[in-house]
């Protein structure tokens, strides 16, 4: 099994360059998934499991060769050509969704949504004064993603298309740490804040956020956004859409079907859920958990209703015993 903590791949869809930068928050999620799967397989089915950390290109080679058997998060959108070929050649197999995908969105604190009835990105026009920019009090401010990441330019195009640049200054932090702090600070102080973020991340689980409604993802419009992000002559667009949420899939080497067919059957059903993973990651951050096994146990203890549907009765008993012994 591989943990892909460093995503170095630079080809593929519209967001590849952002992925390596996510390591900080994302790494935790990777490890929680790996250790949870490891516990289920070892305690429920009795196979020994070893987890290995590697980069995307090495994962591709070793998974196709059968040196590792399971990859909990493939992010195949980032190497779609290689993936299509490997699937066609039967070198790897896709066992379906691990969670509902890494959504990206515009957020405000939940209490702001409730108190002011802000539901959509367009509502934000009427409430810019809540998010006043201290450096330019005639406008509000929007916390963009990190300088140089692809999402930064995409967000600019979207803000412009939604007519929000008239009301908001777009502020770009220079590092992911600064971005997290800029969103977490106002939440701690119970002040309004408006920005871009993504999931599953600890920050999303640590505070209550409201995801602003946007026009539903539409491929034709998305292509226009994608073009306008690199070519300012195409701006402003008159419409934009939400980010596409791509499911994050599990990949296996086909040899696993012979070695451990029962594990394959379990993995096929293993959809951990985005919100449970957010909550678990946030729990790990808040309690300063260094040991991933503890976070995985937290997940298994709190989301039994999920994992109990993936495993056989016999495996269920073994896992319950192991959890009780903790």
């Amino acid at each position: 099994m591989a943990s892909d903590s460093e995503k170095t791949n630079k080809t593929g869809a519209y967001e590849p360059r952002r992925l390596p930068k996510q390591a900080r928050s994302r790494e935790r999620v990777d490890r929680i998934l790996d250790v949870a799967a490891q516990l289920l397989i070892e305690e429920g089915y009795g196979y020994p499991v070893e987890t290995v950390e590697m980069t995307t290109p090495i994962m591709q080679v070793t998974l196709a060769k059968g040196e590792i058997h399971v990859m909990m998060e493939m992010w195949q959108q980032n190497f779609i050509e290689w993936y299509d070929e490997a699937i066609a050649d039967g070198k790897i197999e896709n066992l379906g969704m691990t969670y509902e995908g890494g959504p990206q969105f515009f957020v405000i604190p939940q209490w702001v949504h409730e108190e002011y009835g802000i539901n959509t990105v367009f509502d934000m026009k009427d409430y810019w004064e809540l998010f006043k920019d201290p450096e330019d009090p005639d406008k509000g401010y929007f916390i963009n993603c990190v300088i140089g990441w692809q999402c930064g330019a995409i967000n600019e195009v979207k803000m412009e298309a939604y007519g929000l640049t008239e009301y908001y200054n777009i502020i770009s932090p220079g590092s992911s740490g600064a971005m997290e702090a800029a969103l977490a600070g106002p939440q701690k102080k119970e002040q309004p804040v408006f920005g871009y973020y993504w999931a599953p991340t600890a920050l999303m689980g640590m505070y209550d956020w409201y995801i602003l409604e946007e026009p539903e993802y539409d491929e034709t419009i998305w292509r226009k956004i994608d073009a306008a992000k690199d070519d300012t002559a195409l701006r402003p667009l008159d419409e934009a859409t939400a980010y596409e949420t791509l499911p994050i899939d599990k990949g296996i080497n086909p040899s696993l079907r012979e070695i451990a067919p029962d594990v394959v059957a379990m993995l096929e059903k293993m959809n951990v859920g985005l919100q449970p993973i957010n909550v678990t990651a946030a729990w790990a951050v808040e309690n300063d958990v260094q040991d991933w096994e503890l976070a995985a146990i937290y997940y298994l203890e709190n989301y039994e209703d999920r994992w109990s549907t993936w495993v056989t009765d016999e495996a269920y008993a073994g896992i319950k015993d192991a959890l009780a012994a903790q």
Binding site: E135, G177, A178, A181
Partner: peptide, 17 residues
């Protein structure tokens, strides 16, 4: 400097201050 940059952002928000 990174040690005090992050608390500074929490205190003042992103920007010039």
């Amino acid at each position: 400097s990174f040690v005090y940059l992050i608390p500074a952002v929490m205190l003042f928000g992103l920007g010039k201050t």
